[in-house]
């Protein structure tokens, strides 16, 4: 179970490309060729995972970008991290 102290980073098997400043991104899983699309919130989250980062730190950073209550953002990012982990796009550190 992922929680705020869980440290995660982008998988070496994944790469993503944004579509411009403040735009969504496409994510490619290199070993399988699976392709994903995501919105700006997910892209900003991925930007923070170039280096290992705790989920709590990611929440702190994204609160500076988005107008959202902390509890809501943390809940959404825990759910998102679970999806990314299940898809093999991020890894636990």
């Amino acid at each position: 179970m992922i929680h705020s102290d869980t440290v995660i980073s982008l998988s070496q098997d994944a790469t993503y490309q944004d579509m411009g400043d403040n735009e969504p991104a496409v994510i490619l899983q290199l070993s399988t060729g699976r392709l994903f699309t995501c919105n700006l919130t997910t892209r900003c989250f991925l930007d923070l995972l170039a280096d290992p980062c705790s989920l709590g730190d990611a929440v702190d950073q994204l609160l500076k970008t988005f107008d959202v209550p902390r509890e809501k953002l943390e809940r959404d990012l825990i759910k998102l991290a679970g999806q990314l982990l299940a898809a093999g796009l991020i890894q636990l550190n």
């Binding site: 403040n22 496409v26 994510i27 699976r34 392709l35 994903f36 699309t37 995501c38 919105n39 700006l40 919130t41 997910t42 989250f45 500076k64 970008t65 988005f66 107008d67 959202v68 809501k72 953002l73 959404d76 990012l77 759910k79 998102l80 999806q83 990314l84 898809a87």
Partner: peptide
């Protein structure tokens, strides 16, 4: 200055 928040999405494409 903050941006309008949207719930994060992740969709697999064909």
């Amino acid at each position: 200055t903050t941006q309008e928040y949207q719930e994060p999405t992740l969709e697999e494409q064909e």
